[in-house]
Computed example of a mutant assay.
Amino acid sequence: MSIFAERLETAMQHAQMTSAQLAKATGIGRSSISQWLSSKYVAKHDKVVTLATALKVEPEWLLGAKSSVTATEPVSSVDPELVTIWEQLDAAGRKKLLKKAHRLVEKDKAPTGKKKGKKKKKAKA
Score class of each variant (00 low, 15 high):
30 R>S: 05
37 L>I: 07
25 A>Y: 04
43 A>K: 00
37 L>H: 02
35 Q>G: 00
31 S>D: 12
10 T>D: 10
23 A>P: 09
36 W>V: 02
6 E>A: 08
19 S>D: 13
24 K>N: 12
10 T>A: 15
5 A>T: 06
3 I>R: 15
9 E>M: 10
16 Q>R: 15
36 W>M: 12
16 Q>L: 01
4 F>N: 06
39 S>L: 07
14 H>M: 13
42 V>C: 04
38 S>V: 07
47 K>T: 01
37 L>G: 06
30 R>Y: 01
43 A>L: 08
23 A>D: 14
3 I>C: 10
14 H>W: 01
33 I>V: 12
46 D>W: 04
49 V>Q: 11
18 T>C: 03
24 K>S: 09
36 W>H: 05
9 E>Y: 08
6 E>D: 11
31 S>R: 12
23 A>F: 02
4 F>W: 08
20 A>C: 05
21 Q>P: 06
13 Q>C: 03
20 A>G: 10
37 L>C: 08
29 G>Y: 05
46 D>Y: 04
40 K>I: 13
22 L>N: 02
17 M>Q: 13
16 Q>H: 10
33 I>M: 04
46 D>E: 13
23 A>T: 10
17 M>Y: 06
5 A>V: 10
8 L>Y: 04
29 G>K: 05
46 D>P: 06
33 I>W: 02
10 T>H: 14
45 H>T: 15
5 A>C: 11
17 M>P: 03
12 M>V: 03
27 G>P: 01
5 A>Y: 04
41 Y>P: 00
37 L>W: 02
44 K>P: 07
22 L>D: 03
21 Q>Y: 03
23 A>R: 02
24 K>W: 06
11 A>L: 05
14 H>A: 13
46 D>I: 01
28 I>L: 13
10 T>F: 14
31 S>Q: 13
42 V>S: 10
